[in-house]
Nucleic acid binder design. Sequence first.
DNA 1: TAGTGGTCTAGACCACGAC
DNA 2: TCGTGGTCTAGACCACTAT
Lengths: 245, 245
Amino acid sequence: MSLALGVDRSSPVPLYYQLAQQLEAAIERGALTPGSLLGNEIELAARLGLSRPTVRQAIQSLVDKGLLVRRRGVGTQVVHSQVRRPLELSSLYDDLEAAGQRPSSSVLVNTVVPASAEAAAALGVAEGDEVHRVERLRLTHGEPMAYLVNQLPAGLLDLDTGRLEATGLYRLLRSAGITLHSARQSIGARAASAPEAERLGESEGSPLLTMERVTFDDTGRAVEFGTHTYRPSRYSFEFQLLVRS
Amino acid sequence: MSLALGVDRSSPVPLYYQLAQQLEAAIERGALTPGSLLGNEIELAARLGLSRPTVRQAIQSLVDKGLLVRRRGVGTQVVHSQVRRPLELSSLYDDLEAAGQRPSSSVLVNTVVPASAEAAAALGVAEGDEVHRVERLRLTHGEPMAYLVNQLPAGLLDLDTGRLEATGLYRLLRSAGITLHSARQSIGARAASAPEAERLGESEGSPLLTMERVTFDDTGRAVEFGTHTYRPSRYSFEFQLLVRS
DNA sequence: TAGTGGTCTAGACCACGAC
DNA sequence: TCGTGGTCTAGACCACTAT
């Protein structure tokens, strides 16, 4: 079929991005089937009235997403559906978005405290400096799923409980002009201490899944330090990993 | 300083790649310091005798790696060192490379067996079809660290123990003409069963870190299914996560 | 040999951010 | 206002794959 691709040159959306979105939508709805060839770039460019580099940029963005594969001498193919499904490591946005989106997440603690040695090291501030500390309990179906502790340098942004529950940490950070860049994460496991078990409705010594994370903005500042514990019967980290070629 | 950048046009290595490597090396050795501006693209292109798109391609590849940040109206800056350190999720290459590289990893089982329902579903073969099954124990400092079980569709490649220990799964896959594309992973935790505890030198009921993975090649075939258990006192998953912008 | 993607050029204009 | 990166064009030649 002909796919009905076409770009709107009066739109402020970049041409390559428009094309990428249309291709992605076509893949998603099955108009482009797994393994099928996309047709050569020159012809596609001519058909759309675009230059080849622009078409290439669109295709490349989908290759980077893992949706397409290019092979020299063969062409550009749609990857098979089992491969393509999701998504990046969800935990960052998941945890930071949290409140507001999911009614089953509640803010238990929201205060300013002196930084512990651990938090100070993670955030790159001096021990004893003021940091915001937020503790949240995440519930699913009325049962505790995770206990989330986030610490942020004080003065980075307004963090009142109302806005936090309504908007989520991620949007508060964005609206404060902070551009997230990267995060360092560590996922492990350990036996629950008595208070940890109590908080999550487990028994002492039962296994917990743990995640520690430091998030950086694009200036290299640490903007968030999270130490989270999850009930392994109710949560696991699922993600897809693209192989750098 | 002037950085002594320059490209070799007689080399088969793409110009943008040469430049990217030189910039990366300069960042790595500190010749380009965190936060410092790279200078505008046009001037850099002129200095190197390259076109601007080529220079942009080099820079873009480092932006994608998280080493550089671009801001309109400002310029291209080196990311601060704390942000830049590692690496993708290590576990895939780590586990697949395994033998050969690390003398402390031994192959315990290497046979062909009928696929269990679980393995069949993961690999996209019929239940009872033949699959290779490899079980390895990973040691550090003489102590068990992880128990790795990998299953592969039979007939995909030669898998004798000698080659496996000498080369590692990853290279065997590559040398069989298989191009890895992506992997789906799930990380969780659970209490150790008696045999699991035995294998890893833990006690029954103690917490284990678990990882399940299905790896796909660029044709969409599932080429590997791994179910691994780790001693949490000796192993955790460490990785950096770049925020898609 | 024919067809594909991979790389590269030498320009152009625009949008956003800093000042 | 000015400088930066963001986008786009219309070509070119090369390298690899398949047949």
